[in-house]
Design a protein around this nucleic acid. Structure first.
Lengths: 336, 336
DNA sequence: CTGAGGGATTGAATCGATTAAATTTTGGTG
DNA sequence: CACCAAAATTTAATCGATTCAATCCCTCAG
C-alpha cells in the first residue's frame, strides 16, 4: 500500500505496470521486449516527459558515452574542420564531444585529461601538445582509450589518424616543376616539426623524380609560419625569382604573395605560388590560392569512428593507423 | 573481519582510516577537515592514483558540471572565437564544455538538447537555429538553465549575451562619412536577420547625425553573405562610385573589393570599404580590411561566467542581458 | 495431461559519491 | 574536574539505471 513517490525509471515502471528492468530494456534492447509491453512503456515515457539519467548508467557501466577532443586551438580552421567532422560523427553515433582547448599548454592539457577521467569519458582524441612519448603514456594512464590525431602512433600503442605530408609536399612541387620549371623555392617552418620535415622530404622526392639535384632547391626556414614571415621571404625572393614557390602553409603563401606584390612582382605571371592546408582563406582572398588540400573533415569523422569501434568492441578491436592522402587544388596562384 | 575489496572513495577511506564522508570533504570542502587528517587522506589519494568518479556525484547532485555549447557552425571564426572564450572560462571554473554543432538543423539541435538533458548537463549556451520563441521554450524545458548567445532575450526569461549591432553600424558609416563624404552604399544581408536590421539601423543613425537624408543611401541586399555575392555588388557599384561602402560582413567586403578591382577600381584610392566582424581574414589578405570588431572571445567568457553564476547561485541570481560594444579597427581599405 | 523449451519478465544487488543528522572529540572555562 | 560549545567525524540513506540469475508463462510435442 505504499504510496511513496518514485522517480526516474521506477516511475515509468510503476505507470506501465512493469519492472524497471523492462523499462531499461525498452530503452536499450527493444528487441527483448514484447511489442505490446514496449508500447505501454513508450506511452508512459511520452506521457511523463521522462528523460533518462545518463549519470546512473555511467556510474553502473563505468563510462560516459562522451569523447574528449583535445586540440591546441579551435579558431584555426585546420582544427575547427576536424572538430566539425568529429561532431558530425559523434552526433550520428549518439556520443557527445567534450571540447578541450589546450592552448599549447602542457599543464592545461594534463588538467583536461584528469577532468575527462573524472567524468569517465569513454575515450579521447588528442592532438598532443608535445610529441613526448612519456607524457603520452601518462595521459593514457589517466584517461581511457586514446587516439592520436595528426601524429602517428606505433600500432602497438593505439590508434591514430594523420595525413601523408610527404605525398603532399611532393604533389605541390611536382605541379610547380611541371607547369613552370625546375627552379623551386621552399618556404618552410622549423624542420623539427614533423609535418614540416615531411613536406620538405616530399619536395625533395619531386625534385629527384625530375632529375633535379637537391642543391638546386632554395630553402627558407621561418620560425613562425605567419603572413608576416611570409611577406619577409617574399621581399627577399623578389631579387632573383624562382619558377615556383612552395609554402608549407597557406598563411606563408599569402605573405609571400604580398611581399612580392610590394616589389611589383605579380603572381602568377612572374612566379607561381602553392600553399598548403587549403584553409578557407585560400579562397577568400583577392588572388585565390593553389593549395594542397587535406581531408580534415573526414579525418575528424574517422577519428570518432575508430575510437568508438575501439570502445564498443574491445574484444575484437585491432589498433589502426590511418593515413589520409592530400590532393592538390589548382587555383589562380599556380594555374595548370 | 571482512576483507572485501573496496573501490573508489571507500578504498581511500579505508586506507586513511577515516569515513568516506571525510574523504569527500577533503575533496570538496577542505576547510571542514583537520589539517592532519586531510594530509593523511591526500597521501592515500596520491598513493593509489585515485580518480574520483564524477558520475556518482552527478547522480546524487543531479547535475554534471558540464556546459553545453550549441552553435550553428564551428569552422566560422565568429563562433570559433566564442568557443575559445567559453573553453577558456570553463577551464578556469572547472567546468567541461560539450560541443554541439547544430549545422542550422532544428532537428539536430533538438536531439542535442535531449542529449544534454540526459547527461544532466548543468546548463547550456545556445545560438539558436531559429529565433522562434516557442522552440526556445521547448529547449528550456528539455534542458536546464539556458543562456542565449547573440540573441537578446527579455530579462524575464533568462540570461543572454549579444553585440550592439546598431552601434556597430553607426561606427562604420560615421567613419566613412567623416573621412570620405556623404555618398554611402550599404551592402547588407537579408533584413529579416536581426543583426542585419540592426546594422542598417545604425547606418541610418549615422546618416541622420550628419544631416544626410535616408534616401541618399544606396542599399544592396544579398541573399547569401558571401564573397561571390559581394563581388557581384562590386561589379555593379563600379559604374557610379559612392564615397564609402559599408558591407555588413567581411566576406561581402572582400568580394566587393574584388569586384571593384576587376573593373579597374582601386580601394581605397577611389572608394573606401568597411567590413564587419573582423574575422581573421580581415588581416590575412593582400589588402587589409577596415572592419567593425566584436569582442567575441570576451563574449564566450562572459557567457560561461554568467551561466555558472546562475547555476551556482540559483537563490540570489538575477537574469542579465549583456550587450557588448563593438569598435572600429582601421586598416587599409578605409584609412583614417 | 505432462514436460520441455524458449521467450518475456522480474528481483535485487550494484556502481560511488554526497549529505543531513547524529555522534564523538577537542579545547576552553568556571 | 566537570561541563559546554564548537569542531571534527561518522552513519546511513540516497541518487537511478543496469544486469543477470531466477522465475514465470506460453506453446507445442509426445
Amino acid at each position: 500500500m505504499s504510496t511513496k513517490k518514485t522517480y526516474g525509471l521506477a516511475a515509468i515502471a510503476e505507470l506501465a505496470g512493469v519492472s524497471t528492468a523492462t523499462v531499461s530494456n525498452v530503452l536499450n534492447k527493444p528487441s527483448k521486449v514484447k511489442e505490446s509491453t514496449r508500447q505501454r512503456v513508450l506511452d508512459a515515457i511520452e506521457a511523463t516527459q521522462f528523460v533518462p539519467n545518463r549519470a546512473a548508467a555511467t556510474l553502473r557501466q563505468g563510462s560516459n558515452r562522451m569523447l574528449g577532443l583535445v586540440i591546441p586551438e579551435i579558431v584555426n580552421p585546420f582544427y575547427a574542420e576536424i572538430a566539425r567532422g568529429a561532431a558530425d560523427a559523434a552526433d550520428r553515433l549518439d556520443y557527445g564531444i567534450v571540447l578541450c582547448v589546450s592552448n599549447d599548454d602542457a599543464q592545461r592539457e594534463l588538467r583536461q585529461f584528469e577532468m575527462l577521467a573524472r567524468h569517465r569519458t569513454s575515450g579521447a582524441m588528442v592532438v598532443p601538445v608535445h610529441a613526448d612519448l612519456g607524457r603520452l603514456a601518462t595521459l593514457r594512464l589517466v584517461g581511457s582509450r586514446l587516439l592520436l590525431i595528426d601524429r602517428v602512433a606505433s600500432v602497438t600503442e593505439g590508434c591514430s589518424v594523420a595525413f601523408d605530408d610527404v605525398a603532399g609536399g611532393r604533389l605541390a612541387v611536382e605541379h610547380l616543376i611541371e607547369t613552370r620549371g625546375p627552379r623551386i623555392a621552399l618556404v618552410n617552418g622549423e624542420r623539427s616539426i614533423p609535418q614540416c620535415a615531411d613536406r620538405r622530404e616530399g619536395s625533395l622526392l619531386a625534385l629527384a623524380a625530375h632529375g633535379i639535384h637537391e642543391s638546386e632547391l632554395r630553402e627558407y626556414e621561418v620560425e613562425e609560419m605567419t603572413i608576416a614571415a611570409g611577406r619577409a621571404v617574399g621581399l627577399a625572393l623578389a631579387d632573383s625569382l624562382p619558377d615556383g614557390i612552395f609554402c608549407t602553409n597557406d598563411q606563408l603563401a599569402l605573405g609571400v604573395i604580398r611581399g612580392l606584390a610590394e616589389r611589383g612582382i605579380h603572381v602568377p605571371d612572374s612566379a607561381a605560388v602553392v600553399g598548403y592546408g587549403d584553409l578557407a582563406l585560400a579562397t577568400e582572398t583577392l588572388l585565390t590560392l593553389t593549395s594542397v588540400e587535406q581531408p580534415k573533415f573526414e579525418m575528424g569523422v574517422v577519428a570518432v569512428e575508430t575510437l568508438v569501434d575501439e570502445i564498443e568492441h574491445m574484444d575484437t578491436h585491432q589498433h589502426r593507423v590511418t593515413q589520409f592522402q592530400p590532393t592538390l587544388v589548382i587555383r589562380e596562384s599556380a594555374p595548370a
